[in-house]
């Protein structure tokens, strides 16, 4: 049951928005520094992107690999063990310029805080075509490892031309009878190794210079509408599954009018610190990082953010004491 909205005059030291590796690592460090962090974990995105992965084999400390959701469970427990508080709610509004800053949650609760860590990660890009929402979970997927199993001996398609699209296409050949890759250009952005592997695979076919313009079907996806971007020619392709792998965008909707962003849409930080353009606001993880985007790099920047928060709070409190 939803609890009553909470509004108090208490000003917290730090609120961390997001619960991927960056958010929870910031929480672990902040909790151990006695800052009683509140982590706003998100309602359906709690745990972040790793919740949709299976084996994570490159996170140091797990020689046999670890399941993404299990790793996130560990990080959460480690943070709460030291006193971090976790709310499975979404932030719906922030006022980062106010003093103290105000964070409003989906259940109506309002929190006031001296410092904020933005670790909202990134969101899979959607095609933006008719039917995409309706068929999501009924043929349209963003996660081959989660859903590939259901397309055994079927005809499916992957949209995209980067490494993640090739990875998905190759993974899906384990199940599907045929995988058609639909790409907007006439060559692949993917790394040479991945591209060569996909191009050589007997179950993978390519449709070049083409975009998906619409999805059709009754209960489940049945037909893709395609348009060739060079000739303008329209066509259809019957598939039961469509895997979308066209990249992701930093999640900045909440803050884009308040903190400075880079041209690529990520939150601008003052490297090597995690300071944003606003005092007391720090950012860590994929929301600041267009390049590396790994669990371990996100965790590293979360650690830096917590320490930046600690120094910031020390300075703020010193000013307050000096004024009294």
């Amino acid at each position: 049951m939803t609890e009553a909205p909470e509004s108090t005059d208490v000003v917290r030291d730090v609120v961390i928005i997001g619960s991927g590796p960056a958010g929870y690592t910031a929480a672990i460090y902040a909790a151990r520094a006695n800052l009683n962090p509140l982590v706003v974990a998100g309602s359906v995105t709690a745990g972040g992107e790793l919740m949709n992965t299976t084996d994570v084999e490159n996170f140091p400390g797990f020689p046999e690999g670890i399941l993404g959701p299990e790793l996130m469970g560990h990080l959460e427990r480690q943070a709460t063990r030291f006193g971090a508080e976790v709310q499975y709610e979404d932030v719906v509004a922030v006022d980062l310029k106010a003093s103290p800053k105000v964070i409003t949650l989906g259940n109506g609760s309002e929190y006031r805080t001296h410092a904020v860590v933005l670790s909202t990660g990134s969101a899979y890009r959607e095609l933006g075509v008719e039917g995409e929402k309706r068929f999501s979970g009924h043929g349209v997927s963003w996660c081959a490892t989660c859903d590939g199993f259901f397309f055994r001996d079927q005809n499916i398609a992957v949209v995209g031309g980067g490494d993640s699209a090739m990875e998905e296409a190759l993974f899906l050949t384990k199940f599907a009878s045929k995988v058609t890759v639909i790409h907007r250009r006439d060559d692949l952005r993917a790394s040479k190794t991945m591209a060569e592997r996909a191009l050589a695979h007997e179950k993978i076919e390519f449709i070049w210079d083409t975009e998906v313009t619409g999805l059709d079907g009754e209960e489940k996806l049945k037909t893709l509408h395609l348009r060739n971007l060079k000739s303008g020619e329209e066509s259809t392709l019957d598939v039961t599954g469509l895997f979308v792998a066209i990249g992701s965008d930093p999640r900045t909707d909440l803050v884009k009018d308040q903190v400075e962003l880079n041209a690529d849409g990520t939150v601008r930080i003052d490297h090597p610190s995690t300071r944003t353009s606003l005092p007391g606001v720090f950012a860590a993880g994929d929301v600041t990082d267009p390049t590396y985007r790994q669990a371990i790099t996100a965790a590293g920047s979360g650690c830096i953010a917590a320490q930046d928060v600690e120094h910031y709070l020390a300075d703020v409190k010193e000013l307050v004491t000096a004024a009294v």
Partner: peptide
Amino acid sequence: AEWCGPCRM
């Protein structure tokens, strides 16, 4: 399914 991470959560 066993292999489904989110299912475990």
